[in-house]
Structures are given as structure tokens and as C-alpha cells.
Design a protein around this nucleic acid. Structure first.
Lengths: 204, 204
DNA sequence: AATTAGTTTAACCATTTGGTTAACAAAGAT
DNA sequence: ATCTTTGTTAACCAAATGGTTAAACTAATT
């Protein structure tokens, strides 16, 4: 066989590619920069991943497979809507603070190439809102929730949790906060957002 | 002077540039494609706008100047919070249905180059949340609203209104709607969103 | 020691891309 | 009528970019 793969080059490449693609996007990323960040020769990128497109897809799928289980919790979990909202909001915001470029990367690239989501859907059977809608309808009929449309509620949950990170520069400009202040606002949202949602939909 | 400017070339260029930049972004846009869309020679782009960067900035500022007055209404209008929320939600969603690429374009490019917002802020004195925060505090003290933080409320209003358009491919995937179904969901939100917000914050 | 097969590199290549140049055309100024 | 200014085009250019090649290197196998 060959050289001891003590430093897994393939992983280093994927890691460097993740950094560059997630900050610059497919169009803004340069193969040379990825090679530089990985500390290797540009030809190696093509040795392990045939083309820029394939390397990008590896990064994208990797990123999406990190996000999907988070969203899945809201859709296919057995707890009550109220508990789901509380847990998801707190967990998701913690998650994104650890992966700040992730939501914007995914949204940006899905907009650039909307067909891309088809490939994703084949691998992820759970991207389905049906169970969640049924649960909302049930809790409404039980008098736990006010009349509420499941799909709109789901959009609202995503919006309130994801948007602030996607629109970070805009929010920083309006609120005149620096990075520290922005982070504080986001920490506050871990409880604020679920209260906001529950306040609106819970029957009392 | 020169040739009859019966068809204002400069405007045609800006219009073509708007189309291409807003769908492909700065990095994905090609000067040749803009020229083709405008139906002119590539050299003309550089005759009227010195460089790709300057043409891009013209497009961006133009786009932002369209969006800013919409946001300004929420911040510096004299009606009650409840009326603001109702009017803004309905108006904003109508506005975006007319300019579907706008929010994503602005958010994407601000993330690519966060310093860009400084240039914007110099021209727009009104990007300031202070008045809104004071109004919320006042209505809370008057017992009209439940205890509510102005900055978080503003983030929530933006999130609920803007996010669905930014994350359109994701939402279409989850809800399994086509373009028509998506538009119907958005039309529904013109009233749903403001009810959702008012439900949550109004004292009763 | 020689073979073998995976790994790595430097140099190279074709194409794309933003930008420039020089010649030309039309209309107003002199 | 001629000069000048503005608008327009085709051809061109240098740099950047994704990708390739062929040779060199490394370590386990025979």
C-alpha cells in the first residue's frame, strides 16, 4: 500500500472546503483558496473530489445532514406542541451559535439552485410536515390550542428561529449592536421566542 | 451631442443588471450576460458604469432604497403598534410578491460584505430602532401591551414577514407545495401574521 | 532489492472573465 | 463645412480559474 494516512487528507480537504464554501458560497469560492486553507496542492482537490461541483455537493450534503435532524425534532417528535416549541427554540439557537454560517449557506445555495433540494429529499424521508399538521389539528380540537394552521405555525417557528442569523448584518445595523450585543440578543431569544409563540397560540 | 438617445441605454443597463445581479448575486453574475440581457455591447457597461463593482453598487443601492421605506414605516410612523403591525404585514407581503428576489438579494450581499451597510447607513438616517422601542415601552406602561422588549418584537416582525420569501425553496420542500400553493400560503399570511403577533403581545 | 500501488507535486493548459482600445457614427457647436 | 463631443462597436488583452498531466515520492508486499 501507500503512505500512512496519519493525517487524513480527504478530511482536511472537506474541512477546508466547508470553511471556504460556507463563507463565500459556490460562486465566490476558489479552488486555490480551498487548497491553501487545507495546506495542500490544488491537484489534490481533484484527486479526491473530481470537480468543484462534486466537492461543493459533499460540503452541502454534510451541512444539510447537520441541520435536518434539528428540524426533524419539530416535525416528528412525540411531545406536545408547547414542549416542542420550547425545546426546539432553545436547542436550535444553541446549535446555530455553534454553526453560524450554516443557515445562510443552505438558504443561499438552495436559492441559487432550487432543484438541489430534490437530491436532498431522496435521502431524507422525514422532510414532511404532515404529522405536525395533524398534531396541531388534534390539539386545537382538544382545546389546548386556539384555532391554528399547522403549516403557518411551522413557518412561523422556522422564521423566528432562523431569520435573525440569516439577517444578522441587517439586525446589527438596526439595533446598533456589535457582535457581543448581537449574541446577547440571540441568547435572550432562547426563551423569548418560545414565550412569544406559546402566548400567541395557547388557549387560556 | 451624440446619437439619438431615444432608448435610454443607461437605464436599460441598470435594468438588465438588476435582473442578473438579483438572481445570481455579485459573484455569480457575468458582465457579458448583463450586456446580452440589455441587448448591447459589453463595452457599454464600462462606458456608463466604470466597473462591475460600481454597477453592482448602483443596483444594490437601488434595491435597498426600495426596501428601506417599507421598514421605515414600522420604525417611524405615528400609528399604534397594533396598527403598525397590521399595516406593515399586509403591505410588506404585497410588496415582496411584486419584488420576489429583493429580500434574498439584499441579505445575501450584506452577508458577503457586511461593511456594505455602512455606506447605506450614511444615506439613510432612519435606520434606527430607538423610536420604536420607546413606543413599545410606552404602550406596555399604558397596559395596552404585555411586557415586551421592543428590539425583540422588531426582530420578530421582520422574521415573520421576510423569512418565508428568503427560505422559499425550503418551505416549498417541507409543505410540498408548488409555486401556486406557495403564493396562496403567502397571501394567507397577510392577515395570519399580524393576528399571530397581536395575539401574542396585546394585553387582554 | 525490486515491484506495486496509492499519494503528492510542479508545471501546464484551455477557457472564462473583467476590462481596454481604437476606430467609427451621429449630432451639436463654431 | 468642419470640429468636437458623446455614444457605440468589434477586436483585443492580461489575469484568473477549474482542471490535467506526467513525473516523483512513499511505504507496504513479494
Amino acid at each position: 500500500m501507500a503512505k500512512v494516512k496519519d493525517s487524513n487528507t480527504e478530511e482536511q480537504i472537506l474541512d477546508a472546503a466547508k470553511n471556504v464554501f460556507q463563507t463565500k458560497g459556490m460562486d465566490g469560492a476558489r479552488m486555490q483558496e480551498i487548497a491553501d486553507v487545507a495546506g495542500i496542492n490544488k491537484a489534490m482537490l481533484h484527486y479526491y473530489y473530481k470537480s468543484k461541483q462534486l466537492l461543493f455537493e459533499a460540503v452541502f450534503k454534510n451541512a444539510f445532514s447537520l441541520l435536518a435532524p434539528q428540524l426533524n425534532k419539530v416535525l416528528n417528535d412525540d411531545s406536545s406542541i408547547e414542549d416542542k416549541v420550547k425545546n426546539f427554540t432553545s436547542n436550535y439557537i444553541s446549535f446555530i451559535i455553534k454553526h453560524p454560517y450554516l443557515p445562510n449557506f443552505i438558504i443561499q445555495e438552495l436559492n441559487r439552485n432550487p432543484d438541489f433540494i430534490k437530491t436532498i429529499q431522496e435521502n431524507n424521508t422525514f422532510l414532511n410536515i404532515e404529522k405536525f399538521k395533524q398534531q396541531v389539528a388534534l390539539e386545537v380540537s382538544q382545546g389546548i390550542l386556539k384555532p391554528t394552521k399547522g403549516d403557518q405555525l411551522f413557518i412561523n417557528i422556522l422564521a423566528l428561529n432562523i431569520f435573525p442569523f440569516v439577517a444578522k448584518p441587517l439586525i446589527k445595523a438596526f439595533t446598533k449592536e456589535d457582535d457581543k450585543g448581537f449574541k446577547a440578543l440571540m441568547e435572550q431569544r432562547k426563551t423569548e421566542v418560545s414565550e412569544f409563540i406559546i402566548n400567541s397560540i395557547k388557549q387560556h
